[in-house]
Design a protein around this nucleic acid. Structure first.
Lengths: 218, 218
DNA sequence: CTCCAATAGACCGACTGTCTGTCGGTAATA
DNA sequence: TATTACCGACAGACAGTCGGTCTATTGGAG
C-alpha cells in the first residue's frame, strides 16, 4: 500500500523510529530493516531520504543538539537572573530530563550504552564545543562582578564540561551512589578553585536546586 | 599449505596484523578477511583463537594497556625522583611516542580516527580508571611534603586525566597550534590551582622537559 | 476557467556484494 | 590415541543500489 507524504514529514517519521530503536538496541544493533518495518516503508524510500544509515544518526544528533543548545542559550542570555544561579540553571537545562518528550524523546538513553560508541562520541563533540562558549559568557559577567577570578574562563569551562560529561553522564567511570556523592562534592569544590570563587559560594546555590538533580552536564 | 604453530605465537601474529590494519583502516573498515589474508590463515583458524572480531580488539587493547600502565607504575614507584618531576615523567611515559615500536607499534594512531569510536572509548575507559590511582599516590606524597594542598587528590587527578586525554590526545577539540599552546598554559595554571600548588611550581618543571612533548595524558 | 500532459519527486522491492561467525572434518603433535 | 591447531565451504544477515511505478503539481492549450 502506497502512501505519499511530504519529504519532511517522512524524514521525521524515520528519525522518530530510529530514535526509539537506537535507544532500545543501539546503532549497530538496529538494522535498516528494523527501521523500515517500524515506519512501514520500503528500502528504497529510506535511501531516498537519507544517503546512509550513519546519515540518519547525524540527522538525529542535529535535531537533538538544536533543541539542547538553543534552550541553554535562552537561559544564558537572561541577565535578570543572578550569575551563579544562572549557571546552575543552564547546567540543569542541559540535562535531558528537562527536555519535554516532544520529538527526541529518549535520545539520551542511548548515548550511554557502550554499543553506541559512535553516537556517544559525536554528541560529546558537539557538547564539548557548544556548551563552554555559552558558559564562558556567564563567567565573564561573574568576573566583572568580582565573583570569580581567572585568566582562563574558557579553558576552565572546557575542563568542567568535559569532566562532568565523562563522569556524571557517561559510563566512563562506574560508581556507587556514595562515590557519586563524594565526587559531586569534590567537583563543586574544584570548580570553585578553578574559578577563583569564594569557597562555598557555588555549593550554596547548588544546594538550593539540589533535590534529584545531579549537576551533570549534557 | 598447512603450518602449525603454538597458540600464543599465532595469537600474536593475528594481533600484530590486526594492529596494523586497524591503524590503517579502522576497526569497522577492516574485515576479518583482511586479517586472514595478512596473516595467511583460514577463517576457522582465526575463530579458533578468538571468539569474535571484537575479541581481537579487546586483546589488542589489553596488550597495549599492560605495556602502558606498567611502564607508568615503574616510574611512579621510584621515590628517588622528586615529586613534581616524577609526575611529569609519568605523564610523558603515558605518551605513546615513548613506547618503542615493539609489539603494539602503531596502536595510538587509530584511536584518534573517528572511525574507531569503540576502540577509542575502550582505551579511554582503561586510562581514566587506571591512570588516576597511579598519579594520586604521587600527589599524596606531594601533600605530605607541603607541595600541594587538596582534600580531593583522586578527584583532581581524575579531572586532569580526563581533560588532558580529551583535549590534547583526542580529536574532541580541533585547535590551531596557537590555541593548543594557550590551552597548555591554561591547563598547567588550572592544575596548580586544583592541587593548591604554588603558582608556577608546575610550570617550572614542565619547562625543563619542554621540547616537543606536549603533556597530553594517555 | 478547465483539462490534460509533462515533469518532479516520493515510493517500491528484488537484488548484489560483503561480512561475520559456524561446523564438520583433516593434519600434526605429544 | 588424544589433543590441539588448522582448514574452507557455508549460512544468515545486512547495507546500499537500481530500474521502475505511482502521485501530485504545474503550466499551457483550448
Amino acid at each position: 500500500m502506497r502512501v505519499v507524504k511530504k519529504a519532511e514529514e517522512r524524514k521525521n517519521e524515520i528519525l522518530d523510529a530510529a530514535d526509539e530503536l537506537f535507544a532500545q538496541k543501539g546503532f549497530d544493533g538496529t538494522s535498516t530493516n528494523d527501521i523500515l518495518e517500524k515506519v512501514g516503508i520500503a528500502r528504497g524510500t529510506l535511501y531516498h531520504h537519507f544517503k546512509s544509515k550513519e546519515d540518519i544518526m547525524d540527522a538525529l544528533i542535529d535535531r537533538y543538539n538544536v533543541l539542547l543548545l538553543d534552550g541553554a542559550q535562552d537561559i544564558a542570555k537572561d541577565k535578570s537572573i543572578p550569575v551563579i544561579e544562572r549557571i546552575v540553571r543552564v547546567v540543569m537545562a542541559l540535562n535531558i530530563s528537562n527536555v519535554e518528550s516532544g520529538s527526541s524523546k529518549e535520545i539520551m538513553e542511548h548515548i550511554h550504552k557502550p554499543q553506541n560508541a559512535l553516537m556517544h562520541q559525536k554528541i560529546q563533540k558537539v557538547i564539548v564545543n557548544g556548551v563552554p562558549p555559552i558558559l564562558t559568557e556567564i563567567i565573564r559577567e561573574g568576573i566583572e562582578q568580582g565573583l570569580f577570578s581567572t585568566p582562563f574562563p574558557y579553558e576552565c569551562m572546557e575542563m568542567v564540561v568535559i569532566y562532568a560529561n565523562a563522569v556524571f553522564d557517561g559510563d566512563m567511570v562506574t560508581m556507587t551512589d556514595e562515590e557519586r556523592g563524594s565526587r559531586m562534592l569534590a567537583f563543586v569544590c574544584n570548580v570553585e578553585r578553578l574559578l577563583g570563587a569564594e569557597s562555598g559560594s557555588l555549593m550554596a546555590v547548588m544546594a538550593m536546586f539540589g533535590g534529584g538533580n545531579e549537576g551533570g552536564d549534557e
